[in-house]
Design a protein around this nucleic acid. Structure first.
Lengths: 147, 147
DNA sequence: TTTTTACCGGACAATTTTATCCGGTATTCA
DNA sequence: TGAATACCGGATAAAATTGTCCGGTAAAAA
């Protein structure tokens, strides 16, 4: 569904958001990777993308790390993260890969996939990182496997 | 959403099915690739997978080619093709990549993605190749771009 | 029976994705 | 100021996906 990079990006953003919201503290790359169970160096690249896109904030040096501002917690949506990492193809492109699939010249699955894609867009658009972070904080959602 | 291989596989199956149902004739690899606008050699690999999975039939030699039997037209579903090529991950796996995402230990998006995944499974399960081939035959669906 | 056709199978190559390494820079603290 | 911390950026590498090539095999037609 999403690329690995995007999966890591979403999980990381939620974890960072949870720590920012709950404890008001920054988290280092090492922590992030450990808490979402992802490769450290690769996660760093993904986080850099999100920082450049303005979806989260980073601070260098001791006491530095990643955080989400109150503003970011309230406004950054899943959709923004997905688009920043994977681009908009999954959200708009044709399920069968036709370059110009539309009502003009629909693929045989066009109308079957419309509601699915709409629902996917709706979910991504209406959930903020802050909201999902709250779910994790309340023990209603997990970002890695606890055995 | 699907891999390129899977996109080609679905488009090819529908085209072959349409030719089988409409004209009762086999189609060669060259035809298939031209009609669905896909790389020939790569498409051959995908078709071989589908033949091995029993989802379509091939015949060697002159007058040979690929076809769907009446039985295959009526019973082979999109789901079988997707599973044969991409495996079941897209149909079952966690959207955030957690190895064991369930009600026991759900990811923060688990319940949001359940209906989406259900609907996707429903679409793939309830559409046969024969049905989609009919749509193409009636000019209601296209398998490549006509400018 | 010989030739031609067309799928089969394996090896190979290019591209993209995933992942790692390491020096550079900014920041904090002693 | 100096040392330690932690993100940044570029180069590099491994793996998966996508794509190509070519000889082999089966089947039909001449």
């Amino acid at each position: 569904m999403f690329s690995k990079a995007c999966e890591y990006g979403i999980r990381a953003a939620i974890y960072i958001g949870q720590q920012s919201a709950e404890l008001g503290r920054r988290v280092g790359l090492r922590d992030v990777a450990a808490e979402i169970d992802s490769p450290e160096a690769f996660t760093a690249k993904v986080l850099q993308q999100l920082v450049r896109a303005g979806l989260l904030t980073s601070v260098k040096g001791p006491t530095g790390g990643f955080e989400l501002t109150a503003q970011q917690l309230a406004t950054v949506t899943l959709r923004q993260i997905v688009v920043a990492i994977d681009g908009g193809d999954m959200l708009q492109g044709c399920a069968l890969g036709l370059p110009q699939c539309s009502a003009q010249q629909p693929c045989p699955l066009h109308y079957q996939f419309l509601p699915i894609r709409d629902q996917l867009n709706e979910v991504l658009r209406t959930h903020t990182i802050g909201e999902l972070a709250g779910k994790v904080h309340d023990g209603l959602g997990f970002l890695k496997q606890f055995t």
